[in-house]
């Protein structure tokens, strides 16, 4: 039951707009999650998606990544249909969902070696440096089932540091992080925006990032 406030994009060049969503409509079990949802995501911006529980934040994120196709409306990547340039879109996209994609049996290093190499070549030095930055030094070779939920979340955040992807779609990345972790992630998001990348993030935290725009659902 919602129509979202569209964010303005008038100050941006059209070719700098990564993602354009127009007239998005999604219903689940006869309940309208959102309708007539329009937004633009320009380069260098962090878009925070807000909304109450069950307002369709996760659904929206999965729709944008192409994991969910039960929607109407158009989503364009640099002004073109995503299907027409799937390879370019998927190599520029990094998605971290509720389930963070960290296998509990493997160690952080083994996890990152695989999940990063699905997209780009990665060296062990890069992985070690990233793990150190997210505060997992000393845990590189521990199986992930011995790590806490927050530490596993940090393993997935290390992917943000390694990845050259220009579009990050992050679903509730702050939930299990401690205050230091929250500051670290805000820092990483800001760096991404400074480097001209964009972030879509769902969270109930109030983020202190200058490049922030808020999209409200519900």
């Amino acid at each position: 039951m919602s129509s979202a406030a569209p964010t303005t994009s008038s100050n941006f060049d059209t070719d700098k707009i990564m993602l354009t969503a127009r007239e998005l409509f999604c219903a689940r079990d006869d309940r309208v999650l959102f309708k007539n949802l329009n937004f633009d995501l320009p380069e260098g911006q962090v878009l925070q998606v807000q909304g109450s529980n069950g307002s369709g934040k996760t659904t929206l994120m999965r729709i944008l990544c192409g994991l969910n196709d039960s929607y109407e409306g158009s989503i364009k990547w640099y002004g073109q249909e995503i299907e027409d340039q799937a390879a370019s879109f998927f190599s520029s996209l990094l998605y971290i969902g509720h389930r963070v994609g960290v296998s509990k049996v493997l160690t952080p290093v083994e996890n990152l070696r695989w999940s990063c190499s699905l997209k780009q070549a990665v060296s062990d030095e890069q992985i070690m440096a990233a793990l150190k930055e997210v505060g997992l030094r000393g845990f590189e070779e521990s199986p992930c089932y011995t790590l806490s939920a927050g530490q596993q979340q940090r393993v997935s955040l290390a992917r943000l540091i390694i990845s050259p992807a220009s579009l990050w779609v992050l679903d509730e990345p702050f939930t299990t992080l401690d205050t230091k972790g929250v500051a670290l992630l805000e820092n990483i998001l800001q760096r991404q925006a400074h480097e001209g990348g964009s972030v879509m993030v769902t969270t109930h935290h109030s983020l202190s990032i200058p490049e922030l725009t808020v999209l409200s659902l519900g």
Binding site: C65, G66, L67, F90, L93, Y95, G97, H98, R99, V100, G101, V102, S103, K104, S115, L118
Partner: peptide, 9 residues
């Protein structure tokens, strides 16, 4: 654990 989504993407 969500690895499948990473595979699909």
């Amino acid at each position: 654990d969500g690895s499948l989504e990473q595979l699909l993407l």
